[in-house]
């Protein structure tokens, strides 16, 4: 569980996050949604400790990162897996070396144990036989899966994903979304996904936080979101022609 209390973050004179409080639950896929520029990535980077908010607290379980010493923060980072927008695989390393990296850095496992674990997670993301390839030699969807494998190899308690399906075709995007959700349930991870993709909202929106201009304006799940009359949310949801059409058909049928 991650709890956020009234965080504020500015760059220069511009306040990007204007006092946000919420809770991200364990074993659920928690989504941060909103238009481009609404502060989703900044919020994620605050959670990760890459940005320091000027005000407010971020609690991991019952301990605020602001109150952790360096050793505790380092330990927390070992419990975090992160899936970056572009995958962020190390392109000088093979797939196997990429996935093994967190194990080499943070565990004292033997090489054979590490290899076994690497093959286990690669199988979990349905990738086999690419161990010796380099990231540039596999497709974007496969890179995302490797990146998920790297994020979960060290059994994280927290998983963060920034726009996990940007740049993917709709079918692959759904595969990735479902994979994230399955892993979240399987290992009871606290997962936070930043997205502006309505498909993801439909597929995996178990707890959705809607940001607008740096404020949290709505929170709920993927059923509530179609019932709300919050104008900001409906504008966002029905900005896609597809969803507009579906709504019109539903209204006609009634």
């Amino acid at each position: 569980m991650i709890k956020i209390e009234n965080i504020r973050k500015s760059f220069g004179d511009e306040e990007i996050l204007k006092g946000i409080s919420t809770v991200f639950e364990k074993g659920k896929t928690n989504l941060i949604i909103g238009q481009s520029g609404s502060g989703k990535t900044v919020m994620l980077k605050c959670l990760l400790g890459l940005f320091q908010p000027e005000e407010g607290y971020i609690y991991y379980e019952d301990k605020a990162i602001q109150e952790m010493d360096e050793e505790q923060q380092r330990h927390l980072r070992e419990e975090i897996g992160m899936l970056f927008q572009g995958g962020a695989l190390f392109d000088s390393m093979t797939i196997e070396e990429n996935v093994m990296f967190p194990l080499r850095m943070f565990t004292k496992k033997k090489k054979t144990e590490m290899l076994a674990r690497v093959n286990e997670v690669l199988a979990r993301v349905n990738l086999e036989g690419v161990n010796r390839k380099y990231p540039a030699e596999i497709s974007g969807g496969m890179q995302k899966r490797v990146s998920i494998a790297r994020a979960i190899v060290n059994n994280p308690k927290y998983l963060f994903c920034d726009e996990p399906n940007s740049g993917l075709d709709p079918k692959t995007a759904t595969v990735i979304d479902n994979l994230i959700q399955e892993i979240t349930h399987e290992y009871s991870i606290t997962t936070v996904v930043v997205t502006h993709d309505m498909n993801s909202v439909m597929e995996i929106g178990e707890n959705i936080v809607f940001l607008k201009n740096g404020k949290l304006v709505w929170q709920g799940n993927n059923e509530d979101i179609f019932k709300t009359d919050n104008k900001d949310v409906t504008d966002f949801v029905y900005s896609s022609d597809l969803f507009k059409k579906i709504r019109d058909i539903q209204i006609e049928e009634q």
Partner: peptide
């Protein structure tokens, strides 16, 4: 960023 997130 990936390195930093891992605490490296």
């Amino acid at each position: 960023d990936a390195l930093e997130v891992m605490g490296i």
